[in-house]
Simulated assay, not measured.
Amino acid sequence: MPRTQWRNTARTPSALIPIGRTLAVDLLVLAALFTGAVLLGVLIHGRHAVAHEAVGVLALAAGLAAAILLAAVAALTGSARTGRIAGAIALYAGVALLVEATGLEDPMNIWVLAGTVAVLGALGLLVLGVRGPVTGRAGRWAAGAVGGLTMAVVAAIAAVAVALPGRMPPGWVVATLDVVAWSGAGAAGIIALGAGARSGRALVRRTGIAFATLSAAHAVRIVAGRPPGSDRGAIDAALELTAVAMLLVAAVAFFVAVLRGLRTPTAPTPAPARTHDRTDDREDAAAPSLLGAATVGPVTDAIRILTPALVAGDTADGHDRAGGPPRRWSRANPHRRGRPDRGRPPGRRARD
């Protein structure tokens, strides 16, 4: 590779400073949420079991609120990536957290199997939203297949649980799927975290942090030797509540950023020349700042703020559709000799 091209593609230390700064802010927010979850656990320790169920209901409400907010943004902006992240959160909250909040979860029972299948489907949608075919027919078919198959399997498991109450699935199936699901959650979270940090997508980055935290919560349970569906300890319960709260923070921040962008549309300005190769595929992004990283983050997922004169390629200002300068018609050279016989029929010459 030529030396100049290597300089363009390499990341300079100054380019890595905003990435580290936004990641540090997100980790500080995660630490604050974990502290609040631990304090909540200390507050309800030794109280009635209803208090512990209230924590599950709180996590369910936060997860569903995050999914609803992101679904609204996806409908407003037409962003396929946001819609798939909303679907992943909806599967996790609408099945796994619902089973936990309603008290249907027991060690190794069939409802635990339904929640694990929903987590696997959520991971599929998350991977499709982050690294898969986001747009186009292939992306729509893939997301529809993953979501539809997951809901069909969950519905079948729920029908068996209702028709045959007390039926226990094979223990090795539940344990194997549990390990696969939460190991995959950790891998998908790390992938989303890396992709979001590299491209500057705050929603993807924070979603990756949340799923990695969920994986850590269940890793604590698995290492402690507790079976799937057993009562959670203080640390893993606090980590799970922290992860769901992080999903809600990401959804609220992204929703606020979209509303601000739609309220104050501005004409796009030409991007400054970059010293390195383009490493992100953001379609729309706000200017990065420390306050934006802490509160709203960049609007990064295909927000369509349409300006008709700019989108339709209006030529009223003298510019062509390519956005270049007005076309100039060159004038004839005054020192160039003309041809006196131009435009005359062949065989006839001009008279001197």
Rank of each mutant, 00 (worst) to 15 (best):
R84Q: 15
G83Q: 07
T102V: 12
A74R: 08
L113R: 02
A96T: 04
A74N: 11
M108R: 01
R84A: 12
R81H: 06
V112A: 02
L98V: 13
T102K: 00
L76N: 10
T102L: 11
A96D: 02
D106G: 08
T77A: 11
S79L: 14
T77G: 10
A96K: 00
T102Y: 00
A114E: 04
I85T: 14
L97F: 13
V99C: 09
V99N: 10
A74D: 09
T82P: 04
L98A: 14
S79M: 14
G83W: 05
L76F: 08
I110Y: 01
A80I: 11
A74K: 07
A74G: 14
G103N: 11
V99R: 01
A86W: 06
L76I: 11
N109Y: 06
L113H: 04
G103D: 11
G83L: 12
T102H: 01
A90P: 09
A86Y: 07
T82E: 02
A114C: 02
G94D: 08
A86H: 09
A75S: 12
T82D: 04
A114W: 01
D106H: 08
I110D: 02
D106R: 09
L113C: 06
G103F: 07
A93V: 07
W111N: 07
G87M: 05
A96C: 00
T82N: 01
L98R: 04
A90D: 09
L113W: 03
P107Y: 00
G87L: 05
D106L: 08
G103I: 09
D106S: 06
L97R: 09
G78A: 12
L76T: 14
T102D: 09
A80C: 14
Y92E: 05
A75P: 02
T77D: 11
L104G: 15
T82G: 03
S79I: 14
L98H: 04
G103T: 11
V99T: 07
V95Q: 02
E105N: 11
R84D: 13
G83N: 08
G78K: 09
D106Q: 11
A75R: 13
M108F: 00
L76V: 12
A90H: 06
V73N: 08
L104I: 10
A80G: 15
G103R: 05
G103A: 11
